[in-house]
């Protein structure tokens, strides 16, 4: 079996930047990813990525992809890593399609939307229940919808839906909204929005499509007639395959200042790690750092 110098898992801002650096270092490497662009591709308007005063998420993801394609990079798309094990001086990877061996690995697998874990959630996914307001929001024109969550992504979803939906319930489990003050204020002053704090979704109900949700609000059970449910309860790192790696309480991979995990030769970058802030530009920078660390590791060990 071919032994790669490096395998990069993920093709979001961190993975793509690491790939560009790896290509320029002329490493023999491979990129494995479910998609291209990661969460950046799902972002709305971006105004804090240096060099672009204004760009949308899909456009920035396109730019990243173009940069990646400037080099002859082997990209395995639609592929998910299932297992990752260090054995001797190499790392072995198992995916849903194949098996690979590399001397070093960079994990840049990012985060995905958290699920509610309630009855009806799986059944009604894409039948009224969605995790992507920017994608599916426009389908709920003139309808009554519920947004689940109380942080920035929930508030962002509410603000997107204000122009579209007839009425919006905001179901927040915390005692009050906890996003940026400016966004909380905007949402609180909207007449279309009913905020229900101290409230949890218990079940999503309907026939072919969502018709209502059962919630517990301040200890009381309520049924709300809604046609749309937007789940925005935060993110969880994609680390199921990384059993042997140390994580923090949020399940993020613990790394040192050089992006090294607790196992030599396995590096990590971007939102999947415990790095303090989750920003596109930070993820990109961390990807560059991880690749430079990995190539130094390869050189130091004479691989």
């Amino acid at each position: 079996m071919q032994i790669y110098d490096l395998i990069i898992i993920g093709a979001g801002p961190a993975g793509i930047t690491a790939s560009v650096y790896a290509a320029r270092k002329k490493l023999n490497f491979l990129v494995i990813s479910l998609d291209i662009g990661g969460q950046a591709a799902w972002s709305g308007d971006i105004e804090n990525y240096t060099g672009y005063q204004f760009i949308t998420g899909p456009e920035l993801a396109q730019k990243f992809q173009e940069h990646l394609q400037k080099y002859q990079i082997v990209l395995k798309e639609d592929e998910v890593v299932l297992e990752l094990k260090k054995s001797g001086t190499v790392v072995r990877l198992k995916t849903n399609k194949s098996e690979y061996v590399a001397r070093a690995v960079i994990i840049a697998s990012g985060k995905r939307s958290k699920e509610l874990g309630v009855v009806g959630e799986k059944e009604f996914k894409n039948r009224g229940l969605t995790y992507c307001a920017i994608c599916d929001g426009p389908l709920f024109s003139g309808k009554v919808v519920a947004v689940i969550g109380g942080g920035n992504s929930a508030l962002d979803a509410v603000l997107q839906l204000i122009k579209i939906a007839q009425k919006i319930y905001l179901i927040n489990s915390a005692p009050e909204l906890f996003g940026d003050a400016i966004m909380c204020q905007k949402v609180e002053t909207e007449t279309k929005v009913t905020i229900l704090n101290h409230s949890q979704v218990m079940a999503v109900l309907g026939e072919r499509f969502v018709q209502s949700i059962k919630i517990s609000s301040n200890g009381k059970e309520l049924m709300l007639a809604v046609q749309g449910v937007f789940v925005e309860v935060g993110l969880t790192p994609n680390v199921n395959f990384a059993q042997d790696l140390e994580k923090n309480e949020l399940q993020e991979l613990k790394i040192d200042v050089n992006n090294q995990t607790n196992i030599a030769g396995i590096f990590a970058a971007g939102d999947v790690t415990n790095v303090a802030e989750k920003q596109i530009i930070i993820a990109a920078g961390e990807g560059a750092k991880a690749c430079l660390s990995a190539s130094r590791y390869l050189a130091r060990n004479n691989f």
């Binding site: 799902w42 709305g44 994608c135 426009p138």
Partner: peptide, 9 residues
């Protein structure tokens, strides 16, 4: 929809 990234792709 006008805004969905996968639609644009």
């Amino acid at each position: 929809t006008a805004t969905c990234p996968w639609c644009i792709r």
